[in-house]
C-alpha cells in the first residue's frame, strides 16, 4: 500500500470522526489504518480502555461497522465467540458473506489482564486479528504501570521518587509470547511508519488463523509531551531501536525497517516527561542500562532475522 491508496481506503470511514480521544492521541490513526487494511466486511471488538470509552459514548458511536465491547480482559474471547457464531451460521447456510474479525486492546488489556483470554484464543486458532495499541501503561485509569511500561518510566503507581526512580523492571516481550503460540503471523508496528503498519495489517488479514499486531502508541498525557509530537516521538522510538519494526511469519523473523544510523535511546527518552528524572546526572546509569537493553534486544532480533 502507498499513501494515495491508504488515503482512498480511509474514505470508507469505518471509524468516523466525532469521538472523544485526546488531541494528539495516537490510537485513532492506528485503528483507522488497520480497519482500512481489508476490503472485506469487518466486525470489531474492543477491550475496556481508552479506545472503547472515547468511541462509544452513548447515545453516540464512532463505529460504522458492527462493534462489541464486553469487558476489560476478554476482547479476544469475545471475538472468538463472534467468529464461532459466524462459523456455525455459515455452515448452516444462514450467512453468505465472508467476514473478517478484529479485536483491539490496550497494553493493560493485552499484556496483563487479557493475557489468558488472548492466549486461549490464539491456541484455539480462531480466524481473527488482534491489535494491541500499546501506550505502555494504564492510560484510561490514569497512567498506572503495566507490564508493558518500560524500565525507568515514571507512572502514577511506580512514580519516580526520591528513593525509587520509576519502574524497576523491564517490559514484557509480548511479541515473543505470541510467537510461542506458533500462530501464522505476529508483527510489531508503529503509527509513525503508517505504510509499514498497513502492509502488516493487510498481510495479517490475508492469512487465515490468529494474528497479532503490536503497535506502539505514544500518549500525550501519559508520556507527557506536546500533542503535536505524537508521530515524531513514535518515529524516534523506531529510529533509536527502542521499538523495532519486524514481523514473524510462520516463525520466521524479518526486520521490516532498519534505521540508517545509530541514534542513542536518550534522544527518544528526553522528549517525554515520564523519563524526565533520567536526565539527572545521578540517574545516568539507568539510561545506560536502557541503552544496553536496546542494543542487546536489537542484536537478538538481527540474529533471528538472518
Amino acid at each position: 500500500m502507498n499513501y494515495k491508496e491508504l488515503a482512498l481506503k480511509l474514505k470508507t470511514e469505518k471509524l468516523v470522526p466525532g469521538h472523544r480521544s485526546c488531541s494528539g492521541c495516537g490510537f485513532p490513526q492506528i485503528v483507522r489504518a488497520v480497519l482500512a487494511s481489508t476490503d472485506k466486511p469487518l466486525i470489531a471488538a474492543s477491550a475496556t480502555g481508552c479506545l472503547e470509552v472515547t468511541t462509544t459514548i452513548y447515545p453516540f458511536t464512532s463505529w460504522n461497522i458492527p462493534f462489541i465491547h464486553s469487558a476489560f480482559e476478554n476482547s479476544a474471547a469475545t471475538i472468538s465467540g463472534v467468529e464461532a457464531a459466524y462459523n456455525a451460521l455459515k455452515r448452516r447456510g444462514k450467512i453468505k458473506n465472508d467476514i473478517q474479525f478484529v479485536a483491539f486492546g490496550g497494553d493493560g488489556g493485552t499484556y496483563d489482564i487479557g493475557l489468558q483470554s488472548l492466549s486461549g484464543a490464539l491456541e484455539r486458532g480462531h480466524d481473527f486479528l488482534y491489535v494491541c495499541y500499546d501506550n505502555e501503561a494504564y492510560m484510561n485509569t490514569g497512567i498506572q504501570r503495566s507490564s508493558a511500561t518500560p524500565y525507568g518510566a515514571s507512572t502514577t503507581t511506580a512514580p519516580a521518587g526520591k528513593k525509587i526512580p520509576g519502574k524497576q523492571e523491564f517490559r514484557k516481550d509480548f511479541a515473543k509470547i505470541c510467537v510461542a503460540h506458533n500462530i501464522p503471523y505476529v508483527a510489531q508496528a508503529s503509527l509513525s511508519n503508517i505504510i509499514d503498519l498497513t502492509n502488516k495489517a493487510q498481510k495479517a488479514f490475508s492469512i487465515k488463523g490468529p494474528k497479532v499486531l503490536l503497535v506502539l502508541q505514544p500518549c500525550t498525557l501519559g508520556w507527557k509531551y506536546p500533542m503535536d509530537k505524537t508521530v515524531e516521538i513514535a518515529k524516534l522510538a523506531v529510529e533509536t531501536k527502542f521499538w523495532p519494526l519486524y514481523e514473524v511469519e510462520n516463525g520466521k523473523y524479518k526486520l521490516t525497517y532498519k534505521p540508517a544510523k545509530d541514534v542513542p535511546v536518550i534522544e527518544f527518552l528526553k522528549t517525554q516527561g515520564r523519563f524526565k528524572h533520567l536526565l539527572k546526572p545521578e540517574n545516568q546509569h539507568i539510561v545506560d542500562k536502557i541503552q544496553e537493553n536496546v542494543n542487546s534486544e536489537w542484536d537478538k532480533l538481527v540474529k533471528l532475522s538472518e
Binding site: S80, Q116, G120
Partner: peptide, 17 residues
C-alpha cells in the same frame, strides 16, 4: 475455552453475533 470467564465472554460474543 481456557476458563469460565472466557466461556461466558465467548457466549456473549456469539450471542451478540
Amino acid at each position: 475455552v481456557e476458563s469460565e470467564h472466557s466461556a461466558m465472554s465467548c457466549c456473549v460474543g456469539a450471542s451478540a453475533a
